[in-house]
């Protein structure tokens, strides 16, 4: 360890201070959500809760774990996240690899074909009709297939592959490896930081998505996801008053779920995916060492 110069000391002090401020600013909302979720729901209405609950209770969580559909929805959410991330990352990387190859005949066509998809959409009805005609409604595959590849991710991984020396592939070819082997043996492992990042993106996207459940699987209780169950509670709280304008006589029947309960639901639904990140982080470091090996 070298001795630090004065400039270094100033830089580090400034840097650490900045990071600490950032941490405080970004940790606050989460602590706030946590505190409200642990607070008595009637008391919460008064507002003013910061990072400590005023009337501590676990009741909001107890209420959530009594939800009937919870267990199935957690299983489906975990399954779609794992399977979706695995298939998604392999497919994404494969497309990225193919369009990174300068010698590939259809390279430009495939690239443009993908890039355009980022900016066009047929709209709700055509997409629904497609999924229905493919018999994907009320089918687990609807969580995997339609969102298999995102062009954004493809381009990001390709830019990473572009940074690798092409000689690696050429020398492997001379050793008799075909393109498939090159992809799995050389490209995929060398891209670990990018693969880890994009996997995280896909996983978070899979975990958080609920709209596909709502559109395609909402009538099938066996395929419901955790985020969908959460959205049902969150959205019904947001819109219930609106309906009440149009039906004041049924007010008593429409109990809105209290804010504390919604916050508890938020915590339950985000915690699993939040703790994934520290595990992904280690691949940024690993990528570094692998990167050192490659040349």
């Amino acid at each position: 360890m070298k001795r630090m110069s004065a400039a270094d000391i100033i830089f580090h002090t400034f840097n650490y201070l900045l990071m600490i401020i950032l941490m405080i600013a970004t940790l606050y909302p989460f602590l706030n959500v946590l505190a409200i979720s642990l607070n008595n729901s009637i008391d919460t209405v008064k507002g003013g809760i910061t990072i400590f609950p005023r009337e501590f209770t676990f009741l909001n969580y107890a209420e959530i774990f009594k939800t009937k559909a919870l267990l199935t929805s957690v299983i489906i959410s975990v399954l779609r996240t794992i399977i979706g991330t695995f298939t998604g990352i392999i497919s994404t990387a494969m497309v990225a690899f193919v369009i990174s190859r300068h010698d590939f005949i259809a390279r430009k066509a495939v690239t443009i074909l993908y890039i355009i998809t980022m900016y066009v959409s047929g709209g709700l009805i055509p997409e629904y009709m497609l999924i229905r005609n493919l018999r994907l409604t009320n089918n687990f595959l609807v969580y995997i297939l339609p969102g298999l590849i995102s062009a954004f991710n493809v381009i990001v991984i390709r830019s990473f592959i572009d940074g690798l020396p092409f000689e690696l592939q050429e020398s492997a070819k001379l050793d008799g490896a075909n393109d498939l082997t090159i992809f799995f043996r050389i490209i995929f492992p060398l891209c670990t930081p990018a693969i880890a990042t994009i996997s995280l993106f896909i996983a978070v996207g899979q975990w958080n998505s609920w709209f596909d459940t709502y559109l395609y699987c909402s009538s099938n209780k066996k395929l419901t996801t955790l985020q969908f169950e959460l959205q049902k509670i969150l959205l019904s709280a947001q819109s219930s008053g609106q309906q009440d304008i149009y039906g004041s006589s049924d007010l008593a029947q429409k109990r809105v779920s209290p804010e504390s309960l919604r916050m508890a639901m938020t915590v339950v639904a985000t915690m699993p995916i939040v703790i994934v990140y520290p595990f992904v982080q280690k691949y940024f470091i690993k990528g570094l060492t692998l990167g050192a090996v490659k040349t």
Binding site: V95, V98, L134, L145, P146, I149
Partner: peptide, 14 residues
């Protein structure tokens, strides 16, 4: 993946 992108991203453009 070309087939995939055409089915899922281009056909709905009707």
């Amino acid at each position: 993946f070309v087939i995939w992108v055409i089915i899922f991203k281009y056909i709905p453009l009707w």
